[in-house]
Amino acid sequence: MKQRRSTFVLSMLCFGLAFLYIPMILLIIYSFNYSKLVPVWGGFSTRWYTVLFESEEMWAALGLSLRIALVNATFAMILGTLAGIALVRFGRFRGRTLFTGLITAPLVMPEVITGLSLLLLFIALSHAFGWPQRGFTTITIAHITFSMAYVAVIIQSRLSGMGTDLEDAAQDLGARPLRVMFDITLPLLAPGMVAGWLLAFTLSIDDLIIASFVSGPGSNTLPMLIYSRVKVGLRPDINALATIMIVMVSIGVLLACWLMIRQKHLLERDANTK
């Protein structure tokens, strides 16, 4: 179908994209700036990357962020998948609507509130049981609570698009429900699960607000480090750090998108070949 694109629509699109991406492109360009003054271009250099890589603080923050992101993504994938399966496959169990609401609430809840409420919970817990120590554990738990919601939504949509015929067929052929889960349901959900994992990973790497609330002394994630440094004043090595983060997050999101698109194609192909 041919459609005439008006110049107005096209220019609005360009404007929108420019608005979104020019700052990021500028940031990436300026991360290669030799000058010590951020707004002044002093020629191309990778000097600030060297400075950055020599900073132990940065390495500690990156390490923490990655560890949190990995553990978070894995747990969020498992819990989110289970939640998604429960929502779609277990029929109308008591409290299903409530559960659906609870699962999706973290998606719309302001992060400040999630962060604050989790902080209160952790404080209460550590008063009562002496656990958890604020830091890696608390940030990870906090991240899992909201990223599993995203995974659950991805799995939910994939499952409801799949229908029950395949699982029924497996049962009909003699497979017990647990067997059906491992032979049929999970392999078909795998692309969705990987996409969910990647999404959870990038969400975690990205998060500043919730992490700030629940982290403890000495445990700075990468976004927290950037934020605290920028508060003191613009420094060129932060541009370099931000560039690295943009690259990491982009890779994660692109991979997740690619997987989801591929899975959609596979679904359509299965549907067409009926």
Partner: peptide, 15 residues
């Protein structure tokens, strides 16, 4: 349960 019945089914979608 279906997995214990001496019955098999051919699905409309073939499944």
């Amino acid at each position: 349960p279906p997995y214990a019945r001496p019955i098999n089914m051919m699905f409309q979608s073939y499944a």
